Simulated assay, not measured.
Amino acid sequence: MTHILVPLQVLEGESISAGLAALLEPTYVTLLGYHVLPEQTPPDQARQQYEARATAALEEVAAELGADEGTADYRLVFTHDAEQTFDRVAAETRSDVYAIPGATGPVDRLLVALTGDVAVDRIQSFVAELIGDRDIGVTLFLATDDERSGRQLLETTARSLADRGVDVRTELSVDEPPLEALADAAIDHGAVVVGERAPSLRTLVFGEEAERIAAESVGPVLVVRHLEDADETARSDR
């Protein structure tokens, strides 16, 4: 079962939409409730002040995701460095995917980006598992300056997903800024799937890319991690 890490700024009222909760049903979810502290504020002080309220909010979301059935859990952290915390918790939980929450209703089509130096096989496997036998279509998207090889990659990946019964379309963007083309394509999709290095998770979470995709698509972004050799070894020991 795919393990998904969902960072939430619970003290800012961030939660998971009903559409995202339904989309993630086939997966195991770890909610990472986090609050970024000013440098001068000790984490223990913040925990004393905010822990009860944050924990109550996390428990409510975890229950909606199936914590009672063993398909979700949560952690709460007060940190000075959110990026470092995400990386640490992802490694500790052996998470396959990050989810950047966004508002969405029932998801009937995913936009799956293959642009950049990403692990296409991992993205493809995740998408197939996430969809399962549900009636959710996929649009494979690729921005490139090499039309021939780009089209070949899209066709190969589309064929593999179609063989699993997935309704697949393809969209190729040639010689356009990749992020702008992706944001435009995301508008008509309930959620977006990208690889961690296309662009990087940190850029997606903390940079203008996340704001742009969120503004254009409104929906969540699922980021398939690029696992290093150490992570792969740990995974084989599950």
Results as ranks from 00 to 15, higher is better:
residue 183 A to N: 04
residue 186 A to K: 02
residue 184 D to F: 00
residue 218 V to I: 02
residue 214 A to D: 02
residue 222 L to P: 04
residue 189 H to E: 05
residue 191 A to H: 07
residue 223 V to K: 07
residue 208 E to L: 11
residue 226 H to M: 01
residue 226 H to K: 06
residue 213 I to N: 02
residue 196 E to V: 06
residue 220 P to H: 00
residue 201 L to E: 02
residue 220 P to Q: 04
residue 195 G to L: 04
residue 207 G to F: 08
residue 201 L to D: 01
residue 221 V to P: 10
residue 227 L to G: 00
residue 198 A to C: 13
residue 206 F to V: 06
residue 187 I to T: 15
residue 222 L to R: 07
residue 203 T to I: 05
residue 214 A to T: 12
residue 185 A to I: 03
residue 184 D to I: 00
residue 225 R to Y: 13
residue 217 S to Y: 05
residue 195 G to T: 09
residue 186 A to V: 06
residue 186 A to H: 03
residue 193 V to T: 08
residue 196 E to A: 14
residue 227 L to R: 14
residue 204 L to I: 13
residue 203 T to L: 13
residue 194 V to H: 06
residue 229 D to P: 01
residue 214 A to S: 12
residue 208 E to Q: 13
residue 187 I to F: 03
residue 200 S to A: 11
residue 189 H to T: 10
residue 204 L to H: 05
residue 201 L to H: 11
residue 198 A to K: 10
residue 207 G to W: 07
residue 211 E to K: 12
residue 203 T to V: 09
residue 223 V to N: 05
residue 189 H to V: 10
residue 210 A to Y: 03
residue 198 A to G: 15
residue 196 E to G: 02
residue 196 E to P: 12
residue 205 V to I: 13
residue 228 E to R: 14
residue 196 E to W: 12
residue 227 L to F: 08
residue 189 H to A: 10
residue 193 V to P: 08
residue 217 S to E: 03
residue 205 V to C: 07
residue 188 D to L: 15
residue 192 V to C: 00
residue 204 L to V: 10
residue 214 A to M: 00
residue 195 G to N: 08
residue 183 A to Y: 04
